[in-house]
Amino acid sequence: MFKKILRILWKDIVTEFRTRELFSAMFVFALLVVVVFNFAFESAPRESILQAAPGLLWVAFTFSGVLGLNRSIAIERENMSIQALMLAPVDRGGIYLGKMLGNFVFMMVSELLIVPLFAVLYNFSFSARFGQFLLILVLGTLGFSAVGTIFSAIAVNTKMRDVLLPILFLPVVVPVLIGAVETSVRTLAGEPLRGMMDWVKILIVFDVIFITTSFLVFEFVLEE
């Protein structure tokens, strides 16, 4: 099954490499949010920026991520190729993991390009705690992709899918976002990881629960 999961991921990466539709939309949107808010915070005290900027960063990742999720499932809707995946002898959970990994990779690439720009615009230094911040990015993005992939599959067969996806998905992903923002604020303030292990554990538990549950129920989501 692992080979098939990687093949689904490969298909999404090749498609994206050729069209650049998903990545460019995500990157431009996130960049726009970071740049526009930079002007809003221009005269704010440093303490306020330290508190608010990580939240702003995750808002940018969240909404650009929703754009990515919509596009990711649109690829499967074109020519109804999602049904070809369903016809193949592939465990439905495998289809979920393949699509989820694709969403995760695209979000991570976009985030890793935005973070240095964010650091420059908001005058943050990541050098001391970059590994720690990377771990938070990975855990937060994994949770986001885990929930987003299953909800985009639920929304795909509805007429209002573009509107329905954020309405269904964002309330569920709130625990991940709160955890990611909280740990990001502390990391950027220079706090070591051991001081925020409770939040990191919440992120890990959320990721494990959602990936496992989605893997098991994806069959019922896909089949009418």
């Binding site: 690829i75 020519n79 049904q83």
Partner: peptide
């Protein structure tokens, strides 16, 4: 009637 193909492959 749908082709079930990936257009960009």
């Amino acid at each position: 009637h749908s082709t079930y193909l990936y257009a960009d492959l």
